[in-house]
């Protein structure tokens, strides 16, 4: 008898919890704050600066979503998450949105019941070697010692790559990026492998950056993007279209500085819809019509976010490459805004 009451209560709780989770947008609005799962500190992508403000490429996407949903880019609470805790935190509802350089893979999409709503950075695994090793291609790395983080997809990619090319390597296992870097500098390994963006950031901070090169081969696909829970499509749409709005803004030449100006002068119907001057695109997904304008106003367009955090003006100095707009030979392509 008592047991059945207990299980009844448990079932009711689960049901209530399930119902409550049905609309993340309502939770966010009621809370007045977006809970954004972020990295514990990744150069250029997301970390608190000296005064404790979160900055970075992934962080700006959270700010854009907060600006779109709540009208205020500062109403974000960043929840740092490790590689182990990130998906659980999202599933259990401790964060509304995960924007933390997570690779979109099939099993994460299906088994973990997550939805990757977009790809905001196309990355891939590369190698960095010392110039005096005299190597110009990763295929010449036969017999090399390679610094590699354990327990990552990078480790598996590395094994695959060397096997496919019939060459051997000796792994030097390291726990994290910083240890890898210090081992590499100390000469414990000939080559250091991780995502190309991470390699670029590491190289930028080496004492003798000019003596190190990043090899041309990219041996894996690492599409990184924001993630939401399965089963709340509306919330997924909001995050996806906020991101696309930033892309379209770049395509149409709308920047943080000229939003108002463009809004006043434009004759482009798509721009008018994007900025909420005509139609009710925002209302259709449960936001204000000015939602996307607010997002652009808060963080700028995709190109501006890229340039500010990781682009060629910064010391990380990443080229747009695959992340250029489709009109410039890249892969960033937003569906039509209508």
């Amino acid at each position: 008898m008592k047991k059945s009451v207990f299980f009844g209560a448990l079932a009711a709780t689960t049901l209530v919890a399930g119902m409550a989770s049905a609309a993340t947008i309502d939770d966010v609005k009621a809370r007045g704050e977006l809970l954004c799962g972020s990295s514990t500190g990744l150069t250029g992508f997301g970390a608190p600066d000296a005064s404790g403000n979160w900055t970075g490429f992934d962080v700006d996407l959270c700010r854009a979503v907060a600006a779109a949903v709540l009208g205020d880019a500062t109403k974000v609470k960043f929840v740092p998450l490790t590689g182990e805790t990130r998906f659980t935190a999202l599933q259990s509802g401790e964060v509304d949105l995960l924007s933390r350089n997570s690779t979109w893979t099939m099993s994460r999409d299906s088994e973990l019941a997550l939805d990757f709503v977009a790809v905001n950075y196309y990355d891939g695994q590369g190698f960095m070697v010392k110039k005096d090793l005299g190597v110009s291609s990763a295929k010449e790395l036969d017999g090399a010692t390679v610094c590699i983080q354990t327990g990552t997809t990078t480790e598996l990619n590395l094994a695959d790559f060397f096997k496919q090319n019939n060459i051997t390597y000796q792994p030097v296992n390291v726990a994290d990026d910083n240890e890898a870097q210090s081992q590499y500098v100390a000469g414990a390994c000939d080559a250091y492998t991780t995502d190309a963006s991470g390699l670029a950031a590491s190289r930028a901070t080496l004492p003798d950056a000019e003596n190190h090169i990043i090899l041309p081969e990219i041996i894996s696909k690492e599409p990184l993007g924001p993630v939401v829970r399965h089963g709340d499509s509306n919330w997924g749409d909001i995050v996806r279209w906020t991101y696309y709005a930033l892309l379209i803004a770049e395509e149409k030449g709308i920047t943080q500085a000229n939003v108002e100006e463009v809004l006043a002068s434009t004759t482009d119907e798509e721009v008018k819809r994007l900025l909420g001057a005509s139609g009710d695109m925002g209302v259709k997904i449960g936001l204000d019509n000015a939602a996307f304008k607010n997002a652009i106003l808060a963080v700028g367009n995709y190109g501006e976010i890229f340039a500010r955090n990781i682009g060629e003006g910064t010391s990380i100095n990443l080229a747009r490459g695959l992340n250029a707009l489709w009109t410039q030979g890249g892969l960033q392509y937003a569906p039509p805004f209508r």
Partner: peptide, 17 residues
């Protein structure tokens, strides 16, 4: 580890061990 990784994420101090 926590604060250290935050500090190291800053480009100015990345690589400090």
């Amino acid at each position: 580890r926590g604060v250290t990784s935050v500090v190291r994420a800053d480009l100015n101090w990345k690589g400090i061990y």
